[in-house]
Design a protein around this nucleic acid. Structure first.
Ligand SMILES: [Mn+2]
Ligand SMILES: [Mn+2]
Ligand SMILES: [Mn+2]
Ligand SMILES: [Mn+2]
Lengths: 225, 225
DNA sequence: ATCAAAAATTAGGCTGACCTAAATTATGAT
DNA sequence: ATCATAATTTAGGTCAGCCTAATTTTTGAT
């Protein structure tokens, strides 16, 4: 019997999913920091989640955790709701893309299957959230998309933006100011020698923007021609 | 300092508000039943809520509770959100009026001030929810409306519906089938002698409906001419 | 006025989810 | 290979919000 799953656990699973997207395992400290709680609490919880029937994750002492297929489905369900809410708020209620993440972080836990269906239908089954993250479909399938970090561009290369980091409203407002959003076409103008700061040109707006290397790693693009 | 208020407490305050609308105090058992918890738990909680600074309610042993002005504001805030959600779901997401109460009961706790503002604006500051209940305005003012119970009509009298009970989806579907909804014009055709069952005619649909006395007490109307 | 039944309260526990402090295990620089 | 430091786990709490059982208070029918 899939027991009812608390809001807290939903957030654990979502974080673990995100941290293990590129393979590997999520560490105790990583989760503690992301969830804003102590490492001891995380250890305690993941031990519990590894002993449910069926288990949500596999836990090996000192080796971190990894979701089971069961846990992954649970995570994807929340992620679908989170991203549907984000795009709904932008499309239908006039939110800006820097406002929606915090809101969705709460609403995702209060959303029924029915509301999920209605919102999905109202938006005509959207495929991406406002930050370019893919929305798992009704069967929780999520398309694999070929993507590169902005920071890996060579000078003079062109590309278009696929995905921007969605946590930090300040960053989103900064990016928005220059028109750096999913779909925007960009070209790498220059890179400073020591700290690797990039100057990029955005085709649509004609703007130039300065992007540091750590932010550059978090912006996903597809290379053009 | 108005401490952050848990979802549980929000539900306590809302129930107490409803039970004390017509003056008087809310009893321990009444609340226990409405909240689906034990009477002992209610006693415990209301004692706590009477000792906060400022207190949410006044508690007198064996005499039930009553909201303070402070508690009433807190209750009205949730009620505003509850009713805004209900009307939004009906107007914008194709919900039927029997589906929205359960949904709002959850979403009301997950709604931010910003979302409240946006939904209110999207609906152009609606005054009533789908069941005819008034929505407190942004300042939590709620209009006083003269209303009578349907069951108090005399044979041949006419009136129009102001408010229907919103908890029970089955009842709402039954009423909906005959067109008994806020605004509908009705006329009392007959009343059976012993159990007081009423037969009423709905002008808009031409339907006749059978309404028992306990349901009749929960439907509010205004008498016409 | 009496007293059984109903309502409410008190006492004592439980669970989920968190905490800090102490102990253990892993890691990486020398 | 050693060992200081970092990461993790264990031990022993707290707190909110619920429970049941026992007790006390109120109420209403006689
Ligand atoms: Mn969340
Ligand atoms: Mn997003
Ligand atoms: Mn509620
Ligand atoms: Mn309602």
């Amino acid at each position: 019997m899939p027991q009812k799953i608390s809001e807290n656990i939903q957030d654990y699973l979502k974080r673990i999913y995100e941290f293990t997207l590129s393979g590997g395992r999520a560490s105790t400290n990583q989760l503690a920091q992301a969830l804003g709680i102590s490492a001891a609490s995380v250890t305690n919880m993941v031990q519990k989640l590894s002993k449910t029937e069926p288990p949500y994750l596999t836990y090996e002492k000192h080796q971190g955790v990894k979701l089971t297929a069961f846990g992954q489905q649970a995570a994807l369900k929340i992620i679908r709701r989170h991203r549907l809410i984000e795009i709904y708020l932008v499309e239908k209620l006039g939110y800006t893309w820097d406002e929606v993440h915090a809101e969705a972080e709460i609403l995702e836990h209060a959303m029924s299957s029915l509301l999920e269906k209605r919102i999905d239908a109202a938006l005509d089954h959207p495929k991406f959230d406002p930050h370019g993250d893919p929305i798992p479909d009704i069967n929780l399938e999520i398309p694999e998309i070929e993507q590169t970090a902005l920071s890996s561009l060579k000078i003079g290369n062109k590309g278009h933006v696929l995905r921007v980091p969605n946590e930090d409203p300040q960053v989103l407002r900064y990016l928005g100011k220059f028109g750096i959003r999913p779909g925007a076409h960009i070209k790498l103008i220059s890179r400073t020698p020591y700290d690797q700061t990039m100057r990029i040109k955005i085709t649509e707006t004609g703007n130039e923007a300065i992007i540091g290397p750590s932010l550059g790693k978090k912006i996903s693009i597809a290379k053009d021609s």
